[in-house]
Simulated scan of single mutants.
Amino acid sequence: MKQKVKNNGMLMLTALIWGSAFVAQSAGMAYVGPFTFNSLRCLLGALVLLPVIWILGRKEKSVQGPHTEEKKGDRKTLWIGGICCGIALAVGSSLQQVGLLYTSAGKAGFLTALYILVVPLLGVFVGKRAGIKIWAGVGLALVGIYFLCVKEGFSIVQGDLLMIVSAFVFAIHILVIDYFAPKVDGVKMSCIQFLVCGVLCAVPMVIWERPAAGAVLDAYVPLLYAGVLSCGLAYTMQVVAQKDAEPTVASLILSLESVFAALTSWFILHEKRTPRELFGCALVFLAIILAQLPSKNLRAEKSLKGEAASEINKETEQFETP
């Protein structure tokens, strides 16, 4: 029970860091451009994960032996996965960062969280069926987006549109991670993806933004928060906590990222919300929760597994009884 509470607490802290990072991203662009901010934060994230990888590697060798080596096939898969994730992350985070120039941090948090709905929808194209709760969530989210983003004349502002597109890209990013993560070391792949994303974002940074050293130094607080805490620490906590956490509970807790984004933007940036926008936020959040509730089939399957495990334990006890 203590371990469960600890894991849920770590996931809650992860959601808080990710949600409040929207404030750091918005504040950082008062000094540097979106590609500069993305490039530097991702490179910082990769740098922070290097000592984590070293520490975890030493622990693994102490358990499995000093002569443990990574296979060439695993190393190749690791780099392919890291590069693919890095490309998707570069596109998604760039759309998100540019969108923050035209929309509020709180609204960006809710719209970005739509990736939780997009992931199962994209799964339909690879043969995975979406249940009725997913489709209900999509419908509820569309209504929420209407109240949150659509102004008079049925127009969506540029920043909101970029956030919605970024949610689709982040959904692809999650599916890529889902494919490669079981095959490789998650922390190492994360480090590679941050490195790739940082390098890719550095290209438009050098071509179009050409940041001055003084401007980068002025943005050091948002950069450190988004790079060290959001990229490095939060991801590591997620990996550690989800090893022993119930997936549904974990995803529900992490979806609080959108709530924390709205709260921190209100508290720190003093962003105001109209009643119409608050109603839209509530609908989007309800859609996210609805999409992650386990289906009856899943609950029945878990119940059967629990009963089977119980029967096995009873039989084992009978054999062990003298």
Rank of each mutant, 00 (worst) to 15 (best):
C191N: 05
I192A: 04
Q193T: 08
L195D: 01
V196T: 03
V199P: 04
V199Q: 02
C201P: 05
V203K: 07
P204G: 04
M205Y: 06
M205R: 07
M205G: 02
I207K: 12
E209T: 03
E209Y: 10
P211N: 01
P211M: 07
P211F: 03
L217S: 06
Y220W: 14
G227D: 00
L229S: 04
S230T: 05
S230I: 06
A234D: 03
A234V: 05
A234C: 07
A234Q: 02
A234H: 00
Q238M: 01
V239M: 14
A241G: 01
Q242V: 07
A245R: 00
E246M: 13
T248S: 14
V249T: 11
V249G: 03
L252T: 05
L252G: 04
S255Y: 04
L256R: 14
F260R: 08
A261N: 00
A262H: 09
W266S: 09
F267G: 15
F267L: 15
I268N: 05
H270R: 14
H270N: 08
H270F: 14
H270A: 12
E271L: 06
T274E: 05
P275F: 13
E277F: 05
E277T: 13
E277V: 08
G280C: 03
G280K: 05
C281F: 09
A282L: 15
L283Y: 01
L283H: 00
L283R: 00
V284F: 15
F285C: 04
L286T: 14
L286V: 12
I289W: 15
L290Y: 14
Q292C: 12
Q292S: 02
P294V: 06
P294L: 01
P294Q: 01
